[in-house]
Design a protein around this nucleic acid. Structure first.
Lengths: 171, 171
DNA sequence: ACAGCCATGTAACTTGTTACATGATTTT
DNA sequence: AAAATCATGTAACAAGTTACATGGCTGT
């Protein structure tokens, strides 16, 4: 979020409302959830951090707007972000923790936890595939949804391996 | 984290140090990074939320320890968590945002951003596969690492699709 | 004497998130 | 007259993270 806003500002100065729209468009279906307030919260934090500067602009017949501009260190930050090749969480560590917990506590049967999870992922996979069909073949939204689908399929395969493992261990 | 601690406590009361060790063991290679302080921060927040209770226990020849016990609402929370089938972020939305930013700002070439990312993921994949070979075939750690590998492969395939898309768009 | 384990915590910061509040203009 | 869009923000909480501080016991 922080970085995305900075990157958009590095193209040209903008005000909050504008930024929100761009982000929503960029994220497609996933972007609807974006709370408008968060943009402004983030912007004021960026300002406090000295990464952006503000200027008030009066508009005839419209509410005033606050135009944000990148500072030099803001521009540095963007460059840094674009060249940083880290990648979000590599493994479903959370779920592994849950399985571990389930097996430790005896409160739930790990195999049924896995089953529930797989049903949920299958549901999502269908949902994502449906959404993807709605997008035209060369749209960015489609590409994003295909990425989601690939990942879901990988996770489902992993769940199947987990299930196998637990079943064998119990026998 | 919150939930993992609660789950461990639902098996039996424990003190912070003990919990940390269990978590580190459960997470294997990923758990080394866990800062001891965080356990205590989390425990005190859980206490404030009424999910756990504390009792001080004196030990002969050892420092006192604080033993945490689940409350009734803590136990409810664990049950809730185990039956909740949500799943961590479904798509590499962050990276998509970065590509979008790169293409908007002209500060970086999207295709080279993708390449850098793919190199990084390939590196990680090798790393994860090496780690997996070190684990015995039926260990939990191995299973987790295999999940990570599957997901990395899916992400790499997705990056290849992204690259294709950008190359075609530019031509 | 020193390392390393046992054991606990606090202060401070960052980021995400949401509920709520405000008010003007434009379209139906 | 109502609804949608333009436009901005605040207060407050939740959760993760880290640097730092404290102290005793154990083995070499």
């Amino acid at each position: 979020m922080r970085e995305a806003i900075l990157a958009l500002l590095s193209k040209e100065p903008a005000h909050g409302y504008e930024l929100r729209q761009k982000l929503v468009r960029a994220l497609g279906p996933a972007g609807e959830a974006l709370n408008p307030g968060q943009i402004y919260v983030t912007l004021s934090r960026l300002q406090r951090a000295g990464l952006v500067e503000v200027e008030d602009v009066e508009q005839a017949g419209l509410p005033d707007k606050r135009v944000y501009t990148l500072t030099a260190s803001g521009r540095d930050r963007v460059r840094e972000w674009l060249s940083d090749a880290s990648w979000s969480k590599v493994a479903p560590v959370d779920f592994h923790l849950k399985l571990f917990a389930a097996s430790q506590t005896g409160l739930a049967d790990p195999v049924s936890v896995i089953d529930g999870q797989r049903l949920e992922l299958l549901r999502r996979l269908r949902e994502v595939q449906n959404l993807a069909q709605g997008e035209s073949a060369d749209s960015e939204g489609r590409l994003l949804l295909e990425g989601a689908a690939l990942r879901l399929q990988a996770d489902i395969r992993w769940l199947e391996a987990c299930e196998q493992w637990w079943i064998e261990r119990d026998s």
